[in-house]
Nucleic acid binder design. Sequence first.
DNA 1: CGCGAAGTTGATTACTATCAATCTGAGTGG
DNA 2: CCACTCAGATTGATAGTAATCAACTTCGCG
Lengths: 237, 237
Amino acid sequence: MEMPIKLKKVMSNYVHANCIDCAMRDHCFTQRLDNATLLKLEASITRRRVPRGEIAYSSGDSFGALFFIHEGFFKESDLNDQGEECVVGFHMVGDVMGLEGIADGAYSSDAVAVQDSVVCEIPFQALQALSFSDPALQQAMYRILSREVSQNKKSMMLLGSLPAEERLLAFLHSLSQQYAARGVPASAFELPMSRQEIAGFLGLQMETVSRAFTKLHADGIINVRRRYVEIETTIAA
Amino acid sequence: MEMPIKLKKVMSNYVHANCIDCAMRDHCFTQRLDNATLLKLEASITRRRVPRGEIAYSSGDSFGALFFIHEGFFKESDLNDQGEECVVGFHMVGDVMGLEGIADGAYSSDAVAVQDSVVCEIPFQALQALSFSDPALQQAMYRILSREVSQNKKSMMLLGSLPAEERLLAFLHSLSQQYAARGVPASAFELPMSRQEIAGFLGLQMETVSRAFTKLHADGIINVRRRYVEIETTIAA
DNA sequence: CGCGAAGTTGATTACTATCAATCTGAGTGG
DNA sequence: CCACTCAGATTGATAGTAATCAACTTCGCG
């Protein structure tokens, strides 16, 4: 078994100083924002460290800002009636969190850092005001929002109708693709989240996830040791 | 058992002549678009009948337009590897379909009419161009997109972790809320979709859905006959 | 070195899928 | 107008998968 790659290092190299520009240009967009817009944006940004286990925002908080992930990894989760944790999504460098708040006026889930993270908090008012005068930013916003819609629909396909093993594999593959989209070697990586959190996302129990890992490993489809994963077989989406 | 209410009639009364204005104002938004914008929008709209069973757009089609539902009911579905139908979402009057295409450049699922429907097809380019000059439209677009994100997250909560019966009940309740948001009496309604389609959405088999209906009825929680449903008990979301 | 959190494995139970038969109701044509 | 037909829906019996409960292992950390 090889050593895990230094994913964190690679990821943080990928992100350069100006996180907004980065999130918008490198990940979401082709078009670069002009410098005047960037300067104004910078003025309204609050850059904030979010240590592992802490939250960027909480379910029910009234909506005010969007959160651009500059570094780290988040889960978006909520508790259901039985008190079980239900994970609605995972977010990594370049993703934007809190988009559902625009329409609802409140965040609908907790954004919990599963790694030590850094977010850039931008008041939505500021973003909107700037986008009134900058078509490039406006376009960027449309794409950010649309990308979230697209990603969510993919997640829903994943959750419906696949048995545990295939569901886990699809999840790993999806993660791998997201790493790849950020220019990181994607066939081997360190999972940022626990079995419990994966289970919460996939609608399974932790034990089932663990067994699925074991089975996929035994079948030679993946290589896994704790949180380190190699995807041996490349599988179409 | 009472007769089904004339839901279709009520729904179509709710929608008046200008569907764009309607979708944006009555359902998504508080702010009304100004007349100049509306006139320009009207020029680029294609109003189209979509009979039951036919599609508004298809998975893989290259993205060009958004689809505002003026009348009727759609399912957004795709086939998984096993050839089973996976329903990603349902959409009714006032909803906007195709939003995922903005980022992807292509639609990611089929939009199939489950009732005879009417859609207003608006080229995204036109919408975007107009929104550069009309802040109200821009704001409207943000809210439309955000609302879709919010709705999808709710669906994901629904899919994960609930047993069949509760999952079905949650689904019925969610539908009821969507009717209520459109000003339609919401405790009794006619389901537009088949058991098979509900199953596809909930990640269950048709037989399981049918049994869940029977059980909920037997327990006095709902009243159901074929596609007609009354929700007896009002339940918190 | 021992403690605790995360992860694995085992045995059993509970739920859902599957396969098959039957029922219901809307639409059709004689 | 009624029998026929067929898709949608329901019900039953059984098999398969995941949940649950419980024991145990691994690893990081003071």
